[in-house]
């Protein structure tokens, strides 16, 4: 028996909006740790890993580890039927072939339930090694989203380079080129407005901009985004969900031939 009650139901809605265009079908895994998902896009260039810890839920009952295959675009459609302040409860029976979503309005005057059929999805779970990254950049998520959107009007790739000067985002296309440099800035009124750069070694990596742009759909989940970079490794773009979990996107770099 599975029963998960999420008071801040909008979190689940935002998570689905962040991944539904990147991944078509995926397994949600439920264990004592929490509610999680790991999936790659169809071309195996990007990987998303998300976790809502069990502590994030007001009520968390998961009698045995369960993996539930769902079409994410359909799940997003179901979640769009919930109100912005609704409490969302997920329910499934052991060995059942469906997942029930229950939406309760905050004052309990409206209760809706939607049942979705589960799918069998063959997915390979990848081991993500613990890595010391050469550079870690923390910056306002809205600023990062703005930069990616602006650059995608100019070119198809984004070079991210971190030096002691700051972090530089560059692109090049038919109409010309663009460079945007963000310097470390900790003298801000609110911590979420800070840009913090930790650098062991300078690093430059190039990525397909359309993937990075897709990751920024997670912006409503967090005021800050963290970019972790090492030469010849996938970048990690992480949005922390308060104390409750995270969504991490891994993107394989473009490599010089």
């Amino acid at each position: 028996m599975l029963e998960l009650r999420l008071v801040q139901g909008s979190l689940l809605k935002k998570l689905l909006e962040a991944i539904k265009d990147l991944v078509t079908d995926a397994n949600f895994d439920c264990s004592a740790t929490g509610f999680s998902l790991q999936a790659m896009d169809s071309s195996h260039v990007a990987l998303v890993s998300l976790l809502l810890r069990s502590e994030a839920f007001e009520h968390y009952r998961c009698d045995r580890n369960i993996s539930m295959g769902l079409n994410l675009s359909n799940m997003a459609k179901v979640l769009r039927c919930s109100g912005p302040d609704d409490i969302i409860t997920l329910k499934a029976d052991d060995g059942g072939d469906s997942l029930t979503f229950m939406f309760e309005s905050p004052n309990q005057d409206k209760i809706a339930d939607f049942e979705m059929k589960l799918m069998d999805i063959d997915s390979e779970h990848l081991g993500i090694p613990d890595t010391e990254y050469q550079a870690i950049v923390r910056m306002p998520s809205a600023e990062f989203a703005r930069i990616c959107k602006d650059l995608s009007g100019i070119g198809d790739t984004i070079a991210i380079s971190v030096t002691k000067e700051g972090v530089k985002f560059s692109t090049r296309g038919d109409i010309g080129s663009a460079n945007i440099v963000c310097r470390q800035n900790t003298s801000v009124d609110k911590p979420e407005d800070a840009t913090i750069i930790e650098m062991e070694e300078p690093v430059t990596l190039t990525f397909a901009l359309r993937y990075i742009n897709s990751f920024t759909k997670a912006t409503p989940l967090s005021n800050q985004v963290t970019l972790s970079l090492s030469s010849d490794l996938p970048v990690v773009v992480e949005y922390k969900i308060a104390e409750m979990g995270y969504i991490r996107f891994y993107l394989a770099p473009k490599i010089d031939e």
Partner: peptide, 14 residues
């Protein structure tokens, strides 16, 4: 020329 690499090149099946 930049070639797109794949995630599976870096992370292996667990």
């Amino acid at each position: 020329v930049n070639k797109q690499s794949q995630i599976t090149t870096f992370f292996s099946k667990s």
